[in-house]
Write a protein that binds this DNA or RNA. Structure first.
Lengths: 154, 154
DNA sequence: GGTGAAAACTAGTCGGC
DNA sequence: GCCGACTAGTTTTCACC
């Protein structure tokens, strides 16, 4: 086994050829594929593809195997994007608030008008109201309720 | 086997007990679990859990098995949320534009100030510029570039 | 919904290219 | 870095309770 210098190790770290791209694409479409079937899809053998998948995991490119769930079928929710304008510069406290509030699904620090863009999900208007009152402690906001969405698959 | 009336069939359609919730949670954490291991985790037997998963798929609650990918490691991108203000009411044409532009990852019709909130991903500033010029045909916009993000797991 | 066994499939390893 | 074959173990899928 050949030893490698630091540089080549780093270059290799995020090396991404067409085969790896194909692997990611197929696993994204169906993560339950066995290594054999995956190998067949990309015209390779199981051991080779297994090793590549192992590396993709090791490098943190594949960060998990999960399912897509139709949340709306389970319990309908109200989605909203909330632009927040910090009242003071207590960002640390605000970020703690973000972590604590389960209604907040995403928090994006953005340039431009607002300080943060929050994506929230609440079961009903009452919960929304409570949440917004809590938010007011930290920031003024502009509420954008989602009426319809199109999300493209990766 | 007891026959069921139309009503009970419909009620059953989205029936979601704690066991099904547990199944979804575990599969969300690891979709490659075998039915056996999944069954062990939720204190059931494999055939029982297999049947439940089959139904969850059939009902469209589980819509796919996929992987989480660290996109930033593969090719760093600029993410932005773009609020758009329609110049005219040609929504149909705009929605065609949304479908056609691969830079647009999500499109949310929202109440409030803007008409739509777009989430876009571009590889560089040049692409961003080209995209925004194309967008200007349909709408005025407010650009919010993402500096940092926290996304919570479902 | 549980059980047990048969049939099918799987990941992992090996020498060789 | 990849292949093909082999093996030991695991998984799914039944019929039946």
């Amino acid at each position: 086994m050949k030893s490698k210098g630091i540089l080549s190790q780093q270059l290799e770290l995020y090396f991404m050829d067409n085969i790896n791209k194909a692997i990611l694409l197929e696993l994204q479409r169906n993560s339950r594929l066995s290594m054999r079937k995956l190998a067949a899809l990309i015209h390779m053998t199981a051991p080779a593809v297994t090793e590549r998948v192992r590396r993709l995991e090791e490098q943190g490119i594949i960060t998990g195997y999960t399912i897509r769930i139709d949340q709306q079928k389970i319990n309908p929710i109200i989605e909203a994007y909330v632009e927040t304008f910090m009242k003071s510069s207590h960002h640390q406290e605000f970020l703690k608030f973000v972590q604590a509030q389960k209604e907040i699904r995403e928090c994006h620090r953005i340039s431009g008008n607002a300080c943060y863009l929050l994506k929230i999900e609440v079961p009903d208007q009452g919960t929304l109201n409570t949440f917004l009152e809590a938010l007011l402690t930290y920031a003024n906001y502009r509420l954008n309720i989602v009426i319809a969405s199109t999300v493209k698959d990766a």
